[in-house]
């Protein structure tokens, strides 16, 4: 992290001094990304938590329907998608580290890998949807499928936005040397991507595995 702080940047002292938390001397501990992105991330996770809450509540009163419907879900797809997203997150972590050390080629390659993972997640998801739809399972079939389509759909929407964010990060990574402000933005983007990953890690057991 030292590489950022060591760069002389007029913005750092003014704009971001308040973002520095923890240690008294700057650069010891701070929140990645700018503070505002965390409003967004926690707000979003709060909404998902509410969604999961009503899902579990409705599940407890329709246990039979939920369990019977769940048998039509292939845990395999969910599992593969979990692996894909986890590896994309690792790529993003490594890419950010590479960017901090100004290893331009590494960083952009790693972000491309993450984007590839995200795209394959979306493809698998679409494949899963089309399989469900062709076997006659729709949004309005029953409450379980409502939740299935809505929760995974909202997550997919987040993932697509995340892909846009990663593309932005890719363009930044190609540029090499970034201002501290820009790097904060890229870090924020990475945090968003981790949130997409984290949400899926909750969604997967909730929809596919919980009994």
């Amino acid at each position: 992290m030292k590489t950022i702080e060591e760069r002389s940047n007029p913005y750092f002292a003014n704009t971001h001094a308040k973002d520095v938390t923890g240690g008294s001397s700057k650069g010891e501990k701070r929140i990645p990304g700018e503070l505002g992105i965390w409003f967004f991330i926690f707000g979003d996770m709060l909404m998902f938590a509410a969604l999961f809450g009503v899902f579990l509540h409705d599940r407890s009163s329709n246990l039979l329907i939920f369990n019977l419907s769940q048998e039509n879900l292939h845990g395999f797809y969910g599992f593969v998608n979990t692996l894909i997203l986890l590896s994309s997150s690792i790529c993003v972590v490594l890419a950010i580290r590479a960017m901090r050390h100004e290893m331009r080629a590494n960083a952009s390659f790693l972000i491309l890998m993450a984007i590839g993972c995200g795209l394959s997640f979306a493809c698998i998801k679409c494949f899963e949807y089309s399989e469900k739809i062709s076997s006659g399972i729709l949004l309005t079939t029953n409450l379980f499928w409502t939740y299935y389509y809505v929760i995974t759909g909202v997550h997919l929407f987040h993932l697509l936005i995340g892909l846009g964010v990663l593309s932005f990060c890719y363009m930044q990574a190609r540029q090499g040397r970034l201002s501290v402000e820009r790097l904060r933005l890229v870090e924020g983007g990475a945090c968003f991507w981790h949130m997409v990953d984290l949400l899926w890690i909750v969604i997967f057991p909730l929809l596919y595995l919980v009994r």
């Binding site: 700018e34 503070l35 505002g36 992105i37 409003f39 967004f40 707000g43 979003d44 909404m47 909202v154």
Partner: peptide, 16 residues
């Protein structure tokens, strides 16, 4: 600036 992020989030959520 945090308000900008809140707006982004609310706009996001309202779409549902």
């Amino acid at each position: 600036r945090w308000y900008a992020w809140i707006c982004t989030w609310v706009a996001f959520v309202m779409c549902a």
